[in-house]
């Protein structure tokens, strides 16, 4: 709710804004009359992406900012990709390594 109030005040003062809200709080921009919101399907505390996932973070920030130019009325848009914890990337590699121990493993 805090950012909803800040976003409304900034818009009223003539500053265009866009917020990145998680799906659990999607009702906030709707209820509070927020100008522009990108909704991410992320858990609380990770609205912009998983720790270490700079590519996804950059994509989400860009998607949010691209709601700014050209819009003349409220826009609340869902980011299309699901949450991607880094384990999806590095965990798969780790599991592959554990299934196929390399020649650096002790005793090999």
């Amino acid at each position: 709710m805090s950012v909803g109030h800040v976003q409304r005040a900034f818009e009223a003062a003539g500053i265009p804004t866009v917020g990145i809200y998680i799906r659990a709080f999607e009702h906030v921009p709707h209820n509070m009359g927020v100008s522009r919101a990108l909704i991410t399907d992320h858990p609380m505390g990770r609205p912009v992406g998983a720790p270490g996932d700079i590519d996804r973070q950059r994509s989400i920030v860009r998607a949010a900012l691209e709601l700014l130019p050209g819009s003349t009325s409220q826009q609340i848009v869902r980011y299309p990709h699901p949450y991607r914890p880094m384990d999806v990337i590095v965990g798969a590699q780790r599991r592959e390594t554990s299934r196929n121990p390399t020649d650096t493993a002790p005793g090999s």
């Binding site: 005040a9 818009e11 003539g14 209820n31 009359g33 100008s35």
Partner: peptide
Amino acid sequence: DAKTAFRYDDIPFTAL
């Protein structure tokens, strides 16, 4: 959502 105390009908909006 049911407990949301702050609901507004207007939408302050500034174009970029």
